[in-house]
Simulated scan of single mutants.
Amino acid sequence: MPVVTETDHHRVVSVSLGERSYDIVVGNGVLASVGTAIPDWVNRRFNRTAAGSALIVTDSNVVRHATVVEERLQHAGWRTACFEMPPGEQSKRLEIISSAWDRLVEMQADRQTVVIAVGGGVVGDAAGFIAATFARGIPFVQIPTTLLADVDSSVGGKVGINHPQAKNLIGAFHQPLGVLIDTRALDTLPDREYRSGLAEVVKYGVILDAPFFEFLERNVTELNCRDPHAVAYAISRSCELKARVVEEDEYELTGLRAILNYGHTYAHAFEALTGYGELLHGEAVAIGMAYASRLSELCGRTDAALTKRQTALLGALKLPTNVPNPTAILGKDVIHRMQLDKKTLGGQLRFVLPTRLGHVELVKNVPTELVWQTLHQGGIE
């Protein structure tokens, strides 16, 4: 189980993975400690106290945060370089990754050069993939700057890039040295991006923690207003819940970790078919959870009350629960995209479906006609 420690200024979730263990530090203003935190993590892993080198991967939207990281590390004596990606999901492609590899070669990176992701989920996924593949794997650190990345992609070591036919189809498991989550970075996050992250927060309540879901229901006003205490608790609890799953199924071998993909089979299909970027990831997940819950109803695994409760909370947080312009999508294309999903086994679709609040199961051999029925209910023909 993850160990959670708390001070007046931050919470630390310790992820226990043997030699790959690391801390997730959550707090207001913790970015200021980056010049000591990263060297401490490097020393813990490599028993090295000398100043090192780092490639900071970021995008133009958050370069101001990357500048803080670079300045703090340089002040600590580190040699740094910066690689700025174009913002957006379209940057998770091989051409961009190859340019980052070139940058590492130029800076004469070694096996202990640290790749530091400063940005949202796209930056984190790409930077982690860069680190996992260069020199057969070099260390990296996650410094997420969006709520979605705080609670999802920054934790657990899944890194990857997109294939033209499917999202995150090319990737690896590569755990970070540590995760530094400064909640102050959310102050300037656009409202739509912030709400996208709330979808993943809701997901944790549905799949693992009914009392946490109830906390979210009670604190809709505070979350909508970005109350710092409510947001900080939502982030740290989400990280703790994800860490619990990662500790038990790091490489997604037992099927347990697959529960983190609740709503994602639909979501990834909708993201691809609407054009990456048209739907934010969290928006697609919110829609996907609503569809998956209705599928669970049709399978006789849950009742309509659970679906209604989820859609009510998502709606209160101003998240969508249906695809915009559903008639522009063909059901056969959705099914085809689902067949490319990483949970598909032997050509059979598998879905993460809820049975009650706080509990979901990975279900195989779901009849395709029931999936079609959920699409028709949403206006997709």
Rank of each mutant, 00 (worst) to 15 (best):
Q339R: 11
L94Y: 11
T321N: 10
R45D: 07
E248H: 08
I161P: 06
M338S: 06
D152F: 12
I287A: 06
T133K: 07
L314E: 09
T321P: 12
P326D: 02
A109H: 05
W101C: 09
K308F: 05
A269V: 14
R195E: 14
P324A: 05
P367L: 00
A316M: 15
Y291W: 11
N168S: 07
A305P: 01
R72A: 13
L256F: 09
L375P: 04
P190Y: 01
V246R: 05
T146S: 13
D152H: 08
V159K: 01
A149K: 07
E193D: 15
P176C: 05
L169K: 10
G121K: 02
G263D: 08
Q310H: 14
R226F: 08
A312Y: 07
I329C: 00
T327E: 10
V151T: 08
E70P: 04
M107S: 10
L104G: 09
A232R: 13
T302E: 03
S293T: 15
Y262I: 10
G346T: 09
G137Y: 13
E381T: 09
A50R: 09
R103V: 14
E193Q: 14
A117H: 06
L55E: 13
P324G: 03
A230F: 13
G197N: 12
V118M: 06
N168Q: 08
N47M: 11
K364H: 08
G156I: 15
L189D: 03
A127S: 14
Q348N: 06
G331P: 09
D227M: 05
P190V: 03
W41V: 07
L73T: 06
R192P: 05
L298R: 08
L208T: 03
T188Q: 06
L353W: 02
R45N: 04
D152I: 15
P164S: 03
R309F: 10
G27K: 05
K364W: 01
